[in-house]
Design a protein around this nucleic acid. Sequence first.
DNA 1: TTCTGACCAAAATTCATTTTTAGTCATTTG
DNA 2: CAAATGACTAAAAATGAATTTTGGTCAGAA
Lengths: 212, 212
Amino acid sequence: MTERKTIDRKALIVEAARKSLTMFGYKATTMDVVSKLAGVGKGTIYTFFATKEELFGEIMRQLTQEMKAIVVERIVDSRSFFDNLTDALHGVLQFRETHELVIKLTQELRELGTPAVREALTELENAVLLFIEKEVQKAQDKGDIRRMDPKLTAFMMIRMYVTLAIDWSAQHQPLTREEVEEQFTSLFRYGICPAGMQGEPDTGAGAVPSGS
Amino acid sequence: MTERKTIDRKALIVEAARKSLTMFGYKATTMDVVSKLAGVGKGTIYTFFATKEELFGEIMRQLTQEMKAIVVERIVDSRSFFDNLTDALHGVLQFRETHELVIKLTQELRELGTPAVREALTELENAVLLFIEKEVQKAQDKGDIRRMDPKLTAFMMIRMYVTLAIDWSAQHQPLTREEVEEQFTSLFRYGICPAGMQGEPDTGAGAVPSGS
DNA sequence: TTCTGACCAAAATTCATTTTTAGTCATTTG
DNA sequence: CAAATGACTAAAAATGAATTTTGGTCAGAA
């Protein structure tokens, strides 16, 4: 194999495309721009990816994979659903770059309606939806949460998350990661009834009867 | 005064415009169409409304007014926040025509991005937001709900409502009015914790779920 | 006086022309 | 000689001049 000055050109290309996507969005990420950013001839891109869509697809697959890895490693079957949820959410919010790429694409979809982006984001959302749905199902079977349609519950969770982390920022001071977490988990945990009327708020050392 | 065969042309025009708006949206509602539907010369419209925007504004003002009336008459200060919330939501959901106009305009905004529609819907949302915010504030002062940012809470409520009543239908069987009500109020009341763990669920016999 | 619809300027739409971009391939390079 | 390249091409997108549609007016009919 050619092993001398051979830097991994494929990785270089993916990296460059990802940066461009995050900064300029899908439409403005032309193959010429990617080749320049990667410091590679345009033809080289086509030795690895047959089309622009395929390159884009690879990046979305990577992104989905990374998100899933972050979440999965924070889910421990012996812990309560809510502890897992809080941790998983925390992990996702912390993962800056992934998050920003998704936000950029969402913006582009809204203002340009780029079909490839719509498709990609739908696919991503479906993966997330399916994952949450299964977790909700498990939590129900364990009795951690009350009985309700897991599909609808998963759907509500995603929307609530987007509302807090993205939509709110459109017209207000963005919430910090901590605030998003706090709002998200406490709403799902307690609803909006006064503290003390039901399960315990985070203050106090009282432990919920869960594993561990 | 002229009281013979004088039908209220202004009302005729508003009615026609409202119908057209609900059926065809803002862009397709031309002044010619409105005049034909109202059975009135086009010039007549301009004796009541200086511009198309003004006619549209009048309809939106009417709509806001009607919605507000429905809600206000269902809010009784002596009742709990949740009882009021449930009733108010019920009222809004029942008010079909208003609802459909808003849905039509929302669709148009999404696919055409019509600026006048964006503006109108933003204004409507702000009115609703302000109203809910005040109610939340009152409920907090009464101790009906726990302490949290009223602006953010109001924002979340609207989004949650839209998620249930509109967004969900995009890819699934629409929820019935009853289902929307049930999902909305129970989430805010109890979160998603198991029944019996907190406030009173509607099922009479409190059966503890799978004990572990 | 009240109402109307032909009329006009401005906005939107169409479509032929130009520009940009995804994808190819003959040539170069290590 | 296999891997990399960038000038090249066909197709898609941007542009803008020509044409149609629409908001708004007003002289005259009812």
